[in-house]
Design a binder for these strands. Structure first.
Ligand SMILES: [Mn+2]
Ligand SMILES: [Mn+2]
Ligand SMILES: [Mn+2]
Ligand SMILES: [Mn+2]
Lengths: 221, 221
DNA sequence: AAAATAATTTAGGTAAGACTAAATTTAATG
DNA sequence: CATTAAATTTAGTCTTACCTAAATTATTTT
């Protein structure tokens, strides 16, 4: 495969994330995620589609998806990112709200050798500090069977698996409530008017809005 | 201070190294060290001199030196590089011939926070794995009082302080001979014809040419 | 279905940082 | 000191990746 630039890697990573739901990624969504103007995104997408082998599949006005090569390159970056986050937390005492920004830069700078060394040093972890799955060494994304907390109803118990947010403020808030991966919770109340859930964590009860419950993914017990 | 690009950081670092002897760095030397064509180096030097504040002092055809700002930026990168090398060796088991290349990329990607964390984790080391001095947190380069091994003569004993080479082959060779920082040696013979020195390391004797003895710096006992 | 709105693409430009070829300046040599 | 050689700079291009403004296409709404 050809060497990919930092920019290309960031595009492919975002396209991977946006297309996980099965839909192609739109120019606008991509532009928002990358903090790049839509016009520039169109240009870059056209270049990625013109590479040989092509990194993305693209039809004007129809959005963009990853080719096999593009997906491989995306998973490589995602593996770097998530291993780095785990490594920074475990060995340098970063907190889960601090790691993302650092990993965002380092992911493009480390070698495959570095990747292997930290994976081995951490005992080949399967999840990062936010509970996100780490692509395997041969670049397969493990299957994920988690459910959004927002789908639970009273009397259901679950274990928190992952939190999909990079917002440090939200992450610190969740940590202060004890809502972190591995923790067991129980839903005690549900309001159909505002979709709030009352969730028991340890002995405390917290009322959580949709903004939070759609970002916490759990395994139902 | 303004943010410096990866390219700028590499230029400043090389200029620092080339001007350590007191002489301005020439366009050609810089081009050779950076693997960039002399014409491009001239262009970049002119840009660095035009920044405000200027990062380099430059007079056409007279070579280039660092300003106070430029030296500070250079020492920042050098501190990153050397701390990273120490950290890669200590925590990930890199050997001293492997670290340089990895550090060369990471030095531009880590945050000041990352720098502080690895410095603290390593106990604020003063030298990197090759024995090179690490600039302090407030960006002063400690004084170095070492002597090139080539200046020693029979019956002088010394401790190896630093090895100035990034050539993996040479580094592996030196390691195989036991010529690494901290080791005590004794010069037993000198040939004025080829400037070879015979050096006792432990129980072994090795005849070393100028190519090696000028790259090993020692503290005379 | 036409008009209005939103999303997307094209066109034209900029900035960084590199290269080649040609011109110029300095240094070395007979 | 006049020539030649070496080092350096200028001029003109190229690539990557971004931007703004204008044009186009798609999607809603009336
Ligand atoms: Mn992250
Ligand atoms: Mn990134
Ligand atoms: Mn080094
Ligand atoms: Mn570098």
């Amino acid at each position: 495969m050809m060497k990919t630039s930092t920019s290309t890697q960031d595009y492919l990573k975002r396209i991977y994330e946006l297309t996980e739901c099965g839909e192609p990624a739109s120019t606008n969504d991509l532009a928002r995620e990358l903090n790049i103007k839509p016009a520039s995104v169109t240009g870059m997408i056209q270049k990625l589609a013109a590479e040989k082998p092509a990194l993305v599949e693209y039809q004007k006005h129809q959005g963009v998806t990853l080719t096999t090569s593009g997906k491989r390159a995306a998973l490589e970056v995602i593996r770097h990112h998530r291993l780095l986050e785990a490594w920074l937390v475990q060995t340098l005492g970063y907190s889960w709200d601090e790691v993302h920004e650092e990993a965002e830069r380092l992911e493009h700078a480390i070698s495959e050798d570095f990747e292997r060394r930290i994976a081995a040093a951490l005992g080949h972890p399967t999840r990062d500090p936010h509970g996100e799955l780490i692509p395997t060494e041969d670049l397969k994304m493990p299957a994920d069977d988690s459910t959004p907390l927002s789908a639970l109803r009273p009397n259901q118990s679950a274990t928190i698996q992952r939190v999909i947010s990079q917002d440090p403020d939200l992450l610190r808030h969740l940590e202060s409530l004890g809502l972190i991966p591995g923790i067991q919770i129980e839903v005690t109340e549900y309001s159909s008017f505002d979709n709030n859930l009352t969730v028991k964590v340890g002995k405390k009860q917290n009322v959580l809005g949709l903004n939070i419950t759609t970002k916490i993914f759990v395994e139902i017990l």
